[in-house]
Write a protein that binds this DNA or RNA. Structure first.
Lengths: 341, 341
DNA sequence: CTGAAAGCGCTTACAG
DNA sequence: CTGAAAGCGCTTACAG
């Protein structure tokens, strides 16, 4: 690999001048620039990121911290990561996924080693040891999701609240007055007091109450079979429900087939909305589900921007922003059946 | 952050000595060592990885290349990544997931920038532009999976062949003589001439023939609904099939519920084996499927070892190794029903 | 507009 | 066993 000195020698300039050309950091005459560029081309020069990083004290590498506890990365997480990486690239950074366990030690180590400029934290929990570790350090970071008390912390998050209000609005507009929220009650989530779930449940209860609508709440683990079983529970406890808001990806297929098995037709007898999910989940059932889609792509980009703002001291204030889910109509929703209460 | 000079000054030694202590690269008297260690502790010293990398010409960072075309990372991919990262850690390397598109340019860039020591390639395709790019460079790499002609390329791969033979053995032992392979016929896979599929199909055809068994082949897209539809196809074309080898994760739930819907009981009427998959997929149906599990953890570790072998010149020869799937009994397999041909 | 030189934080022959 | 010094490949004041 050719180095900057090689280029400088061939172009008959100083290495400083080569640097100025590469970084466009100082004016250089057209003639000099051309000599340098020719030399670079001839040598197939690529600037060594390590040397640059050591000298400039910036690696331009951003780490997305991936909590090892997840078994798989869902479409939304991948979208998030991909769009964040893309945005980083546009801003001349590299975003990589750094696999560390959730414990604070490894975060420490990552911070200390000097390889990364900033951290993007996924799947932030309401009480998150990593956040505390980061807060106590000088490492810039942004959260995806937020802790219980995010005051002073830069984050981007899904606006579950306003999104859910939209869903209820939509269903009420279709005449539904008894609506069930079917969410993910797996043990894992219960343990960590999962933010999205907590906030969605709270909004659901409040908003239904406020509108004088009849609310039903069912939780089940995130497996197809559990979805089927949830149908039984729903029919046993609230058979006159006319709309269901599904916030449990893995249960959704089982839930819809379960309804079918009971002779219940979607959307004629019951409307089903898939909430805070992705198109591939919506498309996995018959009929395709009406969806409020997670704004993963937007969040990924915003997360990176928030981080880079900090790195380049452009941030006037801490960025705390939210993005709502977007509506994608499917074939699973329609007017409430007549004759129901 | 304290630097090595700070430590040296406080311990009243040269920075070389500090380096010797940290790296255990030269003998140091116990007394000197203690002074250095105390100083490090007092200053909270952490060695800067950038400086080390520049001086030693080794970053000790390994990149796992993630092809952007995937929409989600399945459990096996996550397991793979996690176990590889763990093994890397044990060997004092960091493994990160580097998101780049599959095109050769970005591979070039990654190679040129000097940030990484080696590359692990996931989801290798039979004809893979990234592999060609890597082959033409000096960057060490190992493949997970293999190309059409892997001669001279270091790889670790799943032994689909011997694993499938085991499955057939198992089913034949249970008295099954008419067996169906239900695999993933989605357009995506067809396009790229997907290795695992190609090899499994070939082995299936050969091995069934060799044993004089009756083979059926059905392909369907990787969605639950397609799995349901595959049942219809199977019953229409080969209703006397008594065992099915499923190699299509997303279709498996739909397939089993489809059977049930037709009044067919697993495993009384038909045995179902889930092939080259993961426990969470096996557990998502009722009954839980008998599984040949992908050896993701083993492969992840082997992949890293193969790469590190190259980096440390320990490799006598190119490592090419395979690992077979492992058997995990479920409740979906049993003796072939009597009275069938 | 261009260059000589210091310095980023380490490792590693080379001496002693 | 320990140290002085060169060097890894860059960036960036400082001069001119």
């Amino acid at each position: 690999m050719a180095t900057m000195s090689d280029v400088a020698r061939l172009a008959d300039v100083s290495i400083a001048t080569v640097s100025f050309v590469i970084n466009e950091t100082k004016p250089v005459t057209a003639a000099t620039r051309k000599r340098v560029e020719d030399a670079m081309r001839e040598l197939g020069y690529r600037r060594n990121a390590l040397g640059r990083a050591l000298a400039s004290k910036r690696t331009r590498i951003l780490a997305m911290l991936y909590p090892a506890l997840q078994r798989r990365l869902h479409e939304s997480a991948v979208e998030f990561f991909t769009s964040a990486a893309e945005r980083a690239r546009e801003l001349d950074y590299s975003l990589v996924l750094w696999p560390i366990s959730n414990d604070a030690d490894q975060v420490q180590e990552l911070i200390g080693n000097g390889f990364i400029d900033g951290v993007l934290l996924m799947e932030v929990q309401r009480d998150d040891a990593r956040v505390e570790e980061l807060t106590g350090s000088t490492m810039p970071f942004s959260l995806i999701g937020r802790t219980r008390d995010p005051k002073g912390l830069p984050y981007v998050d899904v606006d579950f609240e306003s999104s859910l209000v939209e869903v209820i609005d939509y269903l009420e507009g279709l005449g539904h007055r008894k609506i069930c929220l079917l969410d993910n009650g797996s043990a894992e989530h219960a343990l960590v007091d999962y933010g999205p779930l907590v906030r969605t449940r709270a909004t659901f209860a409040e908003e239904m109450e406020r509108r004088g609508l009849d609310s039903v709440h069912v939780s089940c683990p995130d497996t197809p079979i559990s979805g089927q079983e949830a149908v039984d529970e729903l029919l046993a406890t609230a058979p006159d429900t006319t709309a269901v808001i599904l916030m449990n990806d893995s249960a959704s297929f089982g839930f819809t087939t379960g309804l079918t098995k009971h002779g219940i037709t979607i959307p004629r007898d019951i409307s089903v909305v898939l909430f805070a999910s992705t198109p591939d989940v919506a498309a996995s059932t018959d009929p395709r589900l009406t969806l409020w889609r997670l704004p993963s792509t937007v969040l990924g980009r915003m997360g990176v921007e928030s981080l880079v703002d900090q790195l380049e001291n452009r941030a006037e204030e801490m960025t705390q922003s939210v993005a709502a889910c977007t509506f994608e109509e499917g074939y699973s929703t329609g007017p409430a059946p007549a004759g129901n209460p």
